[in-house]
Design a protein around this nucleic acid. Structure first.
Length: 315
DNA sequence: AACGAAAACAACCGCATATCG
DNA sequence: TCGATATGCGGTTGTTTTCGT
């Protein structure tokens, strides 16, 4: 595919925008809309390339831009979302109204990353920092989460249908037990089916050379042997809720960053540290990993002594 | 007050992808 | 279906500001 010719080859201005240029751009967009970014500079009378105009508008001149320092809630969201989707700044920005991807990216690189590194909550993986490896790590996290979700859903749906059958089976074979299950919100499925999950799947597929974004997951999901598609009730919940809140750092260490510096960051706030600690509390029903890793293990490890409860249930 | 280093921020560059004829 | 173009995105770089000596 051909690339758009670089705009600076024809004597267009570069560098910081002046207030006059800003005014021209704002006035033009407010009265005409941005239309084609490529033709906008000429129409508006700016000696800038369309790309530069778009960036200036989307990052600084848009009326809905939220300026000022990031709130603790926003910081928490960024950290959580970054732990899930990695450097998908636009995806993260989509969850933070008024914040731009560029702003979030800068904030991460200049504040959060250093802080987490300093706290030891984030560390580089010098052995392999390639995009594919990073994507694989994320995929592993997602796959684990998804398997858990699938297993839980299977158990829940099966419970409704087979409760009586299980009871009967327990009579004939006391070794087989189907523990009572209670429905619970499934944050993984919600995110998995949200824009965030979708973005991740695409990224992971491209980074790992998958021809189909879903193919690897389909292959790997044989253990659960259930459809990825959640039941209508779960799907409805997925679509109705935002994924901004909740979540915690799954496997933060090694997920990112190629910087191995030991730079000292003076401001390692207790508040930020507490934010991280809070993620694993499990008190929040949206806690990404709080208390749920254990649930995952319980499904796939403790039962593995003999058969998983899934295996049993499917008999 | 002057200087250098570090931090923070703004903007650019190039690739990937979507869109259109 | 294919190629050209436009746009979006993420990484990187350049500039400005702040801080320490």
């Amino acid at each position: 595919m051909g690339r758009a010719p670089c705009c600076d080859k024809s004597g267009l201005k570069k560098g910081p925008w002046t207030p006059e240029e800003d005014k021209i751009l704002v006035d033009y967009i407010q009265s005409h809309g941005h239309g084609s970014w490529r033709s906008l500079p000429k129409l508006a009378g700016l000696l800038r390339c369309g790309k530069s105009c778009r960036l200036r508008w989307t990052n600084y001149l848009r009326p809905d831009i939220k300026r000022g320092p990031f709130t603790p809630e926003e910081q928490k969201s960024i950290i959580q979302l970054h732990a899930i989707v990695g450097n998908k700044w636009s995806t993260i920005a989509a969850q933070l109204p008024g914040r731009t991807d560029n702003e979030i990216k800068n904030f991460w690189n200049t504040h959060l990353k250093k802080r987490l590194l300093r706290m030891g909550l984030l560390h580089p993986d010098p052995s392999d920092s390639s995009p594919a490896a990073a994507a694989s790590r994320h995929m592993a996290q997602w796959e684990g989460a998804r398997l858990e979700a699938e297993a839980r859903l299977s158990r829940e749906s099966l419970f409704a249908h087979s409760a009586s059958a299980a009871a009967a089976a327990a009579v004939t074979n006391p070794a087989v037990s189907v523990p009572p299950l209670k429905p619970e919100p499934d944050f993984f499925l919600r995110i998995w089916n949200s824009e965030v999950g979708d973005s991740f799947r695409k990224t992971a597929a491209s980074a790992t050379g998958e021809s189909s974004p879903e193919s690897s997951f389909t292959r790997q999901s044989s253990a659960a042997a259930v459809k990825t598609e959640p039941p209508p009730a779960a799907r409805e919940e997925t679509e109705s809720k935002s994924c901004v809140t909740g979540g915690g750092p799954p496997v933060v260490a090694g997920m990112d960053d190629s910087s191995g510096s030991n730079e000292v960051v003076d401001d390692v706030s207790e508040e930020s540290y507490q934010l991280y600690l809070d993620f694993g509390s499990g008190d929040d029903d949206l806690g990404l990993f709080g208390g749920q890793v254990g649930a995952f293990s319980s499904i796939f490890s403790s039962d593995l002594n003999g058969e998983t409860s899934l295996d049993t249930a499917f008999k």
